[in-house]
Design a protein around this nucleic acid. Structure first.
Lengths: 146, 146
DNA sequence: TGAAATTAGTTGCATAACTAACTATATGCC
DNA sequence: GGCATATAGTTAGTTATGCAACTAATTTCA
């Protein structure tokens, strides 16, 4: 493959390695420094509920790219921390609607601000076109594999 | 921020979300379909040992971007599967050198080929310049945060 | 209508991640 | 030499992930 000399194997570690690990650790650290006890995984669930409250667990699976057991347990933990509540759907008794509590609503602005700050730190020296390229490539990769 | 209208919070999920999850799942699935019983995390350790055998656990931490407990347990599991062996360093008795067994050496070509194929699937329709941009951005993000 | 297939969610098991606290060895420095 | 400090690795506890197997409710369709 004369026109493809970069090592594809290396690319796996680019996509799954250092950068995403570093960003996740920094964001978790920034939450902790702010006295927030939530994990970044829990935050990513809340993030979607802030955009649209009372989603089904299946819908949260789709939006957060997780499988059903992962969401079940994330919701279990969020419920223990009184950040969400499972409400039975009236139209379909199989469905749990996951709704925010007041305690979770209070966290929205602060945590999103922390996420924005973290990404600002992470993206120093990266321009907007480069960011758009990364987003487009990642969307393409996702579409290719699903 | 008139010149920065993209949502930074969204970028967290770009870097840590769908694409890396999808690639990891696909690579794991391709290992499984080929009858290989190793996890992608174990594979990433072996990958560095194929490049340079008999590294210390600390060196593996650095190269795989993991912390020490993670490497301890990955090596525990790799040792159970007889893919690596801990050897005492002669110059420094604190150090374990982690060395490949013959069984692990046999896996090198096959698994790297599977990783290359997986990345080829993932990167259909993505050109070389875009890949270089992703790599550069991720290196920059990593450098910014460490 | 009623059996088969689909969908929503849970549980069990194995692996892996992070933090904090720990042991053992090596190094620095007075 | 000997004490303080740093480094290599392990252990314990909590959270998260993936897969497979499971229950319960709903939909399909003959």
């Amino acid at each position: 493959m004369p026109n493809n000399q970069f090592k594809r194997g290396e690319l796996y570690s680019v996509i799954n390695g250092m950068a995403s690990t570093a960003v996740a650790r920094r964001l978790q650290k920034n939450f902790r420094l702010a006295g927030l006890e939530i994990t970044i995984e829990q935050w990513s669930v809340l993030y979607h509920l802030w955009k649209e409250d009372c989603l089904s667990q299946q819908e949260l699976c789709t939006r957060t790219f997780r499988d059903k057991p992962s969401i079940t347990r994330l919701i279990d933990n969020l419920e223990k921390q009184k950040l969400v509540k499972r409400m039975a759907s009236k139209s379909d008794r199989r469905i749990n609607l996951v709704c925010l509590t007041d305690a979770a609503k209070v966290l929205q602005d602060q945590t999103i601000e922390l996420a924005n700050q973290t990404m600002n730190e992470a993206l120093i020296g990266v321009n907007k076109d480069e960011i758009e390229t990364v987003k487009a490539v990642f969307q393409r990769v996702y579409d290719n594999l699903t």
